[in-house]
Amino acid sequence: MKDVYEVRMHARAGQGAKSGSQLLAEAAFKEGKWIQSFPEYGSERRGAPTVSYTRISTKRLRTHEPIVNPDAVLVFDPGLARTIDVIHGLSEENGVLIVNSTDSVEEVKKQTGFNGKTYVLDATGISLSLLGIDAPNVPMLGALLKVTGVVKLESLEEVIKEHFLEKLGEEKVNKNLEGLRKAYEEVAK
């Protein structure tokens, strides 16, 4: 693992990317890492494009610049690639792109113009089947963990329980955990 691992998430407001960025950071925090999780804020309204960042480091973090060269990019809505340069700064040699899509990897590569390591996951499908809503954040994180190993699955499971048990109840938490594991198994190269 690199000293500093950086993740950028492109989503639409309401898809839970800000929470996703935070859950990922907290899982790394549990593993004793230095973390930053911060979104780009605009005029918040459901459906508007959002960007969220997570930095995970073995050393104390001092920088407060936005992430310029992410190690991984998660795209929560494939339609965003039509108007936003979602792969900006992502290295084709080492970078990882994960897109929430029902299209094939080849099609997603064409849509995004990215020729590096690309993965697709029907995160919305998983979320709809388990929770009945389009909240692809937890499945997207499952895919990221499988592909990069940036944090352990158990650490994220623990964070999800801590965050949502009181708020959502046991049944929904278990469905979120199921979604996480399902994504972990299903993510396709």
């Binding site: 935070q22 950071a25 973390i35 999780s37 911060f38 979104p39 804020y41 104390r60 973090l61 407060h64």
Partner: peptide, 12 residues
């Protein structure tokens, strides 16, 4: 403290 950069950014 700096708005958003610090106020809304999660850190250790």
């Amino acid at each position: 403290q700096d708005g958003f950069i610090i106020s809304h950014g999660v850190e250790n």
